[in-house]
Design a protein around this nucleic acid. Structure first.
Lengths: 231, 231
DNA sequence: CCTTTCTAGGTACAGCGTACGTAGAACATG
DNA sequence: CATGTTCTACGTACGCTGTACCTAGAAAGG
């Protein structure tokens, strides 16, 4: 296994995890991913550094580079690790709309548990084993539709995009510091006071929507699903 | 103007650009934003550092902190700078679907010119002057619908999310290195060869979609628009 | 005038990704 | 079994990052 980054493939999945010769590796991809996910869950994605992950494993910093030639690859491992949390039915039911609703709801739960995930998922295709398992299931569900192969992949990308976007939006509105909130409120009051933005001012005066996030999600999801299979 | 980050507000827009006393500032927010955008356009978002932006302006690194107390604020400036490129009609036409189609198409053109933008826009609300101008226009367009105030804001978020997601996806499929492509192809061939993912294998065998990206965009956009105002 | 309040920018520090080199373990082959 | 090859572990070091802190000087208020 080449460990120098310059020779390493762009995709970590092209690199066999271990190849016979030499001492047995002290760690596995999944234990590394687990450690990284633990850090991201508790301290945020920016706290995930090669040094911290190595320390979490009780390994030297540079040892990690035997497993993960570039940091991007660590992110790929993390994404595939949580894709392992997806609980996929053995077989699609034949009702694609019901299947996708269940799938999306389940996936949202996972994304909510790991609020750093949407950003990573949006950045690169998920090609790890668990990502492929997900894709295979998705295609199975879509077999009940009349979409072409590319159409199905497009639909998957769009649904995933929607989920990431929703989870991210939810997290970014829920998870701001109190200081942030007060700053934003006082700023918007100032904005309204200028009178330059009458329509925005009116919307702000109406106050926030009374609807629960789950209800908003369900409504948006059904819209997306309807849109997915239209010509 | 407090320059220490700990005292600075969370939102740069809460801080007046200059307040009477002391020497006149040598730079302006927009000239700073311009410099940062220039760097991001030519070298990518990761190349945008406080040092490089300062150097581009011919200023000392730490002088920049008088204008931009935290790096996040620099990103806010950049986003608002390109929001200045939006060409908004003076008044909505009354046909919200046509207006949103034109708006989205124009916005996509801007996002394509600045491929780093989607990531930033997704991360934080756009509250700068140009962002507010956009919001005000959007609300004007949506006045022709029966949505509530929050419903309109929701629609804006969803349309923006879609645009960012599409632009990002487009960029990430177009802009990969040749090495990346060959690695991915050979990986997927290996995946297909395992026989574990028959449906995926079949889709891969069909080859890529023959459709131009613009056609895909138009189709997806119309779907989204239809979905936006449904109950 | 002096005092206050601002701007400019140098120095310094902790933390990052990671290139490179060395030491030793485990397998393949003679 | 001995030897050579190939792997793992990991310390050191470099260049880069954001930014805290400090000094020097310029412009406005009293």
């Amino acid at each position: 296994m080449p460990s120098r980054q310059s020779e390493a493939p762009e995709l970590i999945w092209l690199q066999p995890e271990h190849s016979g010769r030499g001492p047995r590796p002290a760690h596995s991809r999944s234990s590394i991913a687990e450690a990284a996910v633990r850090i991201a869950d508790s301290e945020g994605l920016d706290a995930v550094s090669m040094r911290k992950v190595a320390a979490e494993l009780g390994a030297g910093t540079m040892s990690l580079y035997n497993y993960v030639p570039k940091k991007e690859h660590l992110f790929d491992l993390m994404v595939d690790q949580i894709a392992g949390e997806y609980e996929l039915p053995a077989e699609p039911s034949g009702d694609w709309r019901a299947d996708l609703t269940a799938l999306a709801t389940m996936q949202l739960a996972v994304l909510r548990r790991h609020s750093w995930a949407p950003r990573l998922i949006a950045a690169r295709p998920s090609l790890g084993p668990n990502g492929l398992r997900y894709t295979e299931y998705f295609l199975g569900v879509m077999a009940a539709t009349e979409l072409t192969g590319s159409g199905k992949m497009e639909a998957m990308a769009q649904l995933n995009g929607f989920l990431c976007q929703f989870a991210d939006w939810e997290h970014s509105t829920t998870g701001r510091s109190p200081r942030w909130i007060t700053d934003m409120v006082s700023y918007l009051q100032g904005v309204a006071a200028t009178g330059q933005y009458p329509r925005l001012t009116q919307v702000l005066a109406e106050g926030p929507a009374p609807t629960a996030p789950d209800a908003v999600f369900d409504r948006l999801l059904q819209r997306i699903l309807t849109a997915l299979c239209e010509a």
